[in-house]
């Protein structure tokens, strides 16, 4: 089954295209890493799929239907820095926000929602902190709360924007365990990811992006020098060369 299908997805900011013609089909049950250099449009891609950023062309289908018809099956985890962590809400409040999507506009938060939120917090090991104000958490804990909120959404398809940014090693491995568990349960997860090294072990599929779709496929097939160079515009080798030269001539430092 196809969980996500985009056709010719194009996004422009101030009349400048930042993403063009993205065609991709993601099988349900995939754990996908979205990889590319800074400014490649990785966040923009998932935001435009979610309808948070409007697209100027193309279309998106989720489980065979337009996004609007299947909104409740899609979960979104924005970048941690995108929100104000001084906001006067507790860990529990944030986890509860995950249930808002299914509650609709006028539903009330009740026992059922609290149960769902508690379970989700428990899963990421944040239940003991549920009464804490979110500002009094470490970066890793904040990211876990965001994940708990996503779990509380109970969606089939998830988009996560840099969930590993600025978290400690323990949280990183806890998150990846959780993502793999979600995949086992048949969920489809797309993750914007920065680190090329870890991408190989974390994800079963990679989406290589640099304003256009460079390639999409199984991780092993994507990990070729040619494709990665195409994605990073040859910058990888340049960096390698610079690093190599610097290593060979330690005096070079002084010249700079």
């Amino acid at each position: 089954m196809i969980a996500l299908e985009t056709h010719d997805l194009t996004v422009t900011y101030h009349k400048r295209p930042v993403l063009y013609g993205v065609d991709v089909e993601v099988e349900a049950g995939s754990l996908v890493g979205i990889i590319g250099p800074n400014g490649a449009g990785k966040s923009t891609l998932i935001k435009s799929i979610m309808g948070v950023v409007p697209h100027s062309g193309g279309w998106v289908k989720v489980f065979g239907k337009p996004l609007a018809d299947n909104l409740h099956r899609v979960g979104y985890v924005p970048q941690r820095e995108s929100v104000d962590w001084d906001f006067p809400v507790t860990v529990m409040d944030v986890a509860l926000m995950g249930t808002y999507g299914k509650l609709g506009l006028f539903g009330r938060v009740g026992k059922r929602e609290r149960m769902i939120a508690s379970e989700a917090l428990d899963k990421v090991g944040m239940l003991p902190y549920s009464k804490r104000q979110i500002g009094n958490l470490s970066g890793g804990q904040q990211q876990r709360v965001f994940l708990a909120r996503a779990l509380a959404q109970d969606s089939d398809l998830y988009f996560m924007d840099e969930p590993f940014a600025g978290v400690d090693a323990a949280t990183e491995s806890a998150i990846i365990e959780l993502l793999k568990e979600m995949r086992e349960c048949g969920k489809t997860v797309l993750v914007v990811h920065h680190d090329l090294q870890t991408a190989r072990e974390y994800f079963d599929h990679l989406l290589l992006l640099n304003m256009r779709l460079v390639a999409y496929g199984k991780t092993d097939e994507m990990y070729t020098t040619e494709l990665l160079q195409k994605t990073y515009g040859g910058r990888l080798t340049i960096l390698d060369e610079v690093a190599e030269r610097a290593a060979k001539t330690p005096e070079a430092k002084h010249e700079i």
Binding site: K47, M50, G51, V52, A68, L71, V74, Y76, P78, S82, V83, D84, F87, V89, V94, M97, Y100, G101, L103, L105, F106, V109, R149
Partner: peptide, 20 residues
């Protein structure tokens, strides 16, 4: 009536938008 909508859209407009 709109407490929830106001709170979520003030805290996290991205998630709020993804809820429609």
């Amino acid at each position: 009536i709109f407490y929830r909508v106001l709170t979520l859209s003030s805290f996290d407009s991205g998630l709020a938008a993804s809820f429609g």
